[in-house]
């Protein structure tokens, strides 16, 4: 498959004014301003294939949004170059806009006093679509994203979940090749989150749209993406398939056990007690040092009433990678 996004050693440096605390600090900063150089994105290289759903994740301040903004033409890179759908975003912003769609969960693009239908008409005009093309596309999006129920209700009266669906629909009005989703499920309840995920998957399948997703929600990443790119301090710290991520980083197993009698177990090499309530224990096992079978033997199988062995949650794995605890 061909690459739809190619990022070549891209960097973005911000000059941030620093101020000492209090009023005196503010006065000092006027007379003698001090600046801090912040490398939001540092020599980042990455390629994305056409039709991929990629999770681009990292802790707050890692450089995710800055990277997306450089890929969509909002920001110009300080160094390096990006090519998105064959176009350099820094040089041909308008041309690129026809090929990409963006949804920023924290920023609303829709006119809140207008209905989704009127909004779609407006966005259609922005992308130079003819009236009949807009109507046809609205019908398609209506079917795929199930907007019928509220398409004629002013956006300000919609629930957050309905609004996000409309934001996604508006960003797809011109059939973009790539959709950039920056925390699309932020603030949504679990049911709505799940609905949005289903819709994103459907869009990828039905329209072949490449999805570039950033999210702090592990559910989004686990359920949508086959590839995960983790960045920290503006650099890629991991670029792997979801399958490999789970396989290589799942060294820990979680054992939850209910005992007939109280067990006296202490932390030892390979075993970490997460919770000890006498008859109920929650242990984290490093399988590289201790096998699950050895731990069960230690507990005495005759005295076990119930046992549950599970993988370490993906959230913990990602969090550990963020912290640099694992490589």
């Amino acid at each position: 498959m061909s690459n739809i996004i190619e990022i070549k050693k891209i960097s973005k440096i911000f000059k941030i004014k620093e101020k000492e605390k209090g009023l005196i600090g503010s006065l000092k900063s006027i007379i003698k301003p001090k600046y801090k150089i912040k490398k939001a994105v540092n020599n980042l290289s990455l390629t994305v294939e056409k039709g991929e759903i990629i999770a681009f994740i990292g802790p707050n301040g890692a450089g995710k949004s800055t990277t997306i903004k450089m890929l969509t033409g909002i920001l110009c890179p300080t160094k390096g170059e990006a090519v998105v759908a064959g176009i350099n975003p820094a040089k041909q912003r308008k041309k690129l806009a026809y090929k990409i769609g963006t949804v920023f969960g924290q920023k609303e693009q829709l006119w809140t006093h207008l209905t989704p239908y009127d909004n779609f008409k407006f966005f259609g005009a922005i992308y130079d679509l003819k009236n009949y093309e807009i109507e046809k596309r609205i019908k398609e999006l209506n079917d795929t994203l199930e907007l019928e129920e509220f398409i004629n209700t002013p956006v300000r009266n919609l629930s957050l979940g309905q609004r996000i669906r409309c934001e996604i629909a508006a960003s797809l009005i011109h059939k973009p090749e790539i959709l950039f989703l920056d925390e699309p499920t932020i603030g949504l309840d679990p049911v709505v989150k799940e609905n949005i995920r289903v819709l994103i998957k459907r869009m990828n399948k039905e329209f072949g749209t490449t999805i570039f997703l950033t999210s702090h929600d592990v559910g989004d990443i686990e359920k949508l993406c086959k590839r995960v790119v983790i960045i920290n301090d503006g650099k890629v710290v991991l670029d792997d398939s979801m399958e490999n991520l789970k396989y290589h980083y799942l060294n820990n197993k979680i054992i939850e056990v209910k005992m007939k009698e109280k067990v006296n177990l202490s932390d030892e090499d390979g075993i970490t007690i997460l919770k000890d309530k006498g008859y109920n224990l929650k242990l984290s096992i490093d399988v590289a040092k201790k096998s699950v079978a050895d731990v069960i033997k230690l507990l005495n199988t005759d005295k076990i009433i119930d046992i549950n062995i599970s993988n370490e949650p993906l959230e913990n794995i990602i969090s550990n990678i963020y912290k640099g605890n694992k490589k």
């Binding site: 033409g73 909002i74 912003r93 308008k94 026809y98 920023f104 920023k107 693009q109 922005i126």
Partner: peptide
């Protein structure tokens, strides 16, 4: 407030 973002991703 960064509201130019909305206009920068549009082809106008």
């Amino acid at each position: 407030t960064g509201r130019l973002d909305t206009f920068l991703v549009q082809p106008k």
